[in-house]
Simulated scan of single mutants.
Amino acid sequence: MAVQVTFVAAARGSPLLAERFEGDRQLDQAGWDEVWRVAHELLPLAAADLRYCSPTPRSRATGDALGYAPLVQVALRDCDMGRWRGLTLGEAMAREPQAVDAWLADPRSTPHGGESLLSFITRVGGWLDTRPAEDGCRIVAVAEPSVIRAALVYALKAPPFTYWNIDVRPLSTTTVTGRAGRWYLCLDGIPASLSHA
Rank of each mutant, 00 (worst) to 15 (best):
M1V: 15
A2P: 15
V3G: 14
V5F: 09
A11M: 07
G13N: 03
L16M: 11
L17K: 06
A18E: 12
E19S: 04
E22L: 05
R25Y: 10
R25S: 12
L27G: 06
D28V: 04
Q29T: 14
Q29P: 08
A30G: 13
G31I: 08
D33E: 15
E34Q: 15
V35F: 08
W36Q: 14
W36P: 00
A39W: 13
H40K: 13
H40V: 13
E41G: 00
L43C: 08
L43A: 14
A46T: 09
A48Y: 05
D49V: 05
D49S: 10
R51W: 03
T56I: 03
T56A: 12
P57G: 00
R58E: 07
R60A: 09
T62C: 04
G67I: 02
A69Y: 10
P70T: 08
P70R: 08
P70L: 08
L71H: 12
V72R: 13
Q73E: 15
A75G: 12
L76D: 10
R77H: 14
C79Y: 01
M81K: 02
G82I: 06
R83I: 11
W84V: 05
T88F: 04
A92R: 04
R95M: 12
R95S: 12
R95P: 02
E96W: 11
P97D: 04
Q98N: 14
Q98K: 15
Q98A: 15
V100D: 01
V100T: 05
V100A: 01
D101N: 13
W103P: 00
A105V: 02
D106S: 07
D106Q: 04
P107L: 01
R108P: 00
R108A: 15
T110H: 05
G113K: 04
G114A: 05
S116V: 01
L117I: 02
L117R: 02
L118V: 07
I121S: 03
T122M: 11
V124K: 01
W127H: 10
L128S: 01
R131N: 10
P132M: 09
P132T: 14
P132W: 08
A133R: 13
A133F: 07
C137W: 11
R138F: 07
R138H: 13
V140W: 05
V140E: 06
V140N: 09
A141D: 10
E144F: 00
E144H: 10
E144L: 07
S146N: 09
R149V: 02
R149M: 01
A155P: 00
A155E: 03
K157N: 13
P159S: 07
P160F: 01
F161G: 11
F161D: 15
Y163I: 01
Y163E: 03
V168H: 02
R169M: 05
P170N: 11
T174E: 00
T174G: 00
T175H: 02
V176G: 03
V176I: 14
T177Y: 09
T177E: 13
G178V: 10
R179M: 10
G181E: 03
Y184H: 14
Y184E: 15
L185Q: 09
D188V: 15
G189M: 04
P191I: 03
A192W: 09
A192S: 14
L194Q: 06
S195K: 10
